[in-house]
Design a protein around this nucleic acid. Structure first.
Length: 297
DNA sequence: AGACATGTTGCTCA
DNA sequence: ATGAGCAACATGTC
């Protein structure tokens, strides 16, 4: 389900639910797919008895930092969700991880199980003490220090950050010259956080046909693509930030009619700018929606 | 019943 | 070696 802004929404939902209170109990669905590769016993040791102190989101992933230095990483896959429930919550069939504090339950649920839980154990006490003596705060050490796990540091630099330049986009388009634009926008190594609906939204705003080969763009078109990537990310984060809640925004009154999004799946949906009937086809392996009036092959 | 779903990965083939 | 396309993963919903 979740792309960039929804991931941020879910991160905040967990983060704001609890003042830093101790995790008293943890439930892990050990055999389920999202936990693959993680040692449930080590996870349990690190998390139970510690507090959730901070968190961050990048692309489609979240990292939660616990006192003591453990990292919990969550990817929501196609159908994942984070919820907050009462402390006496009884986990359901698709709940893979539940953290209980004295007042709340933090629930990670994912019916299709394409999501993923990742984990890094706290550093040894001696290392943590040395860092403190060097004058780093614990939070800084965790965020920027040498022990940031590889699954976090390897995430591509954000679209709204300084490294996402027109030149970087143009170079990437050249390298993927024969792939359709739609497929290229879904590549997380250059467009981290973009998913199916955001890709369609970006191409619609940039007036580029999703089947255009990436290598065929003129410089002005590459620049439009770059600009709309940033714009759609900014707007999506703003909508989520203003209590927009998770999408689908076809049910979200805050999404204005100047978006393709609310019309994407509508039967007989029409382009909100031109009024023509929207078209749909599988491009880059995913259902794609575009406006034939704005987006020419 | 059958098609389809906001994602990623690992395989095959060029 | 590099890149493009596609099946597979697992379950729910229309």
């Amino acid at each position: 389900m979740p792309e960039l802004a929804e991931v941020e929404f879910f991160r905040r939902r967990w983060q704001e639910a609890v003042p830093p209170s101790t995790v008293l109990r943890m439930l892990v669905h050990e055999r389920a797919r999202p936990l693959r590769g993680v040692d449930p016993a080590a996870l349990h040791r690190a998390i139970v008895g510690s507090r959730l102190v901070s968190s961050e989101a990048a692309a489609k992933q979240m990292a939660f930092h616990f006192s003591g230095g453990a990292w919990l990483g969550l990817h929501l896959g196609m159908s994942g969700e984070l919820r907050v429930a009462a402390a006496d919550y009884v986990p359901g069939r698709h709940d893979h991880l539940v953290l209980f504090t004295s007042r709340r339950a933090l629930v990670y649920t994912d019916p299709r199980m394409f999501g993923r839980i990742q984990f890094q154990a706290p550093p040894p006490a001696s290392l943590a003490a040395r860092e403190l003596r060097r004058g780093e705060s614990r939070a800084d050490a965790r965020r920027f220090g040498p022990q940031a796990p590889e699954w976090w540091t390897k995430i591509a630099p954000p679209i709204l950050g300084p490294e996402f330049t027109v030149a970087a986009v143009a170079a990437f388009l050249k390298r993927r010259a024969r792939a359709p634009l739609k497929a290229v926008l879904l590549m997380q190594e250059r467009f981290p956080g973009i998913g199916n609906w955001m890709a369609d939204e970006i191409l619609w705003r940039a007036a580029l046909h999703p089947r255009r080969p990436a290598g065929s763009l003129r410089p002005a078109e590459a620049q439009a693509l770059w600009r709309e990537c940033r714009q759609v990310c900014r707007l999506a984060l703003r909508v989520m930030g203003g209590n927009g809640g998770p999408l689908p925004p076809s049910h979200n009154a805050l999404i204005p009619n100047t978006w393709l999004f609310p019309h994407r799946w509508e039967a007989g949906g029409r382009c909100p700018r031109t009024g023509v009937a929207l078209r749909r086809a599988t491009i880059g392996g995913r259902t794609t929606c575009w406006s034939p009036a704005r987006q020419k092959p």
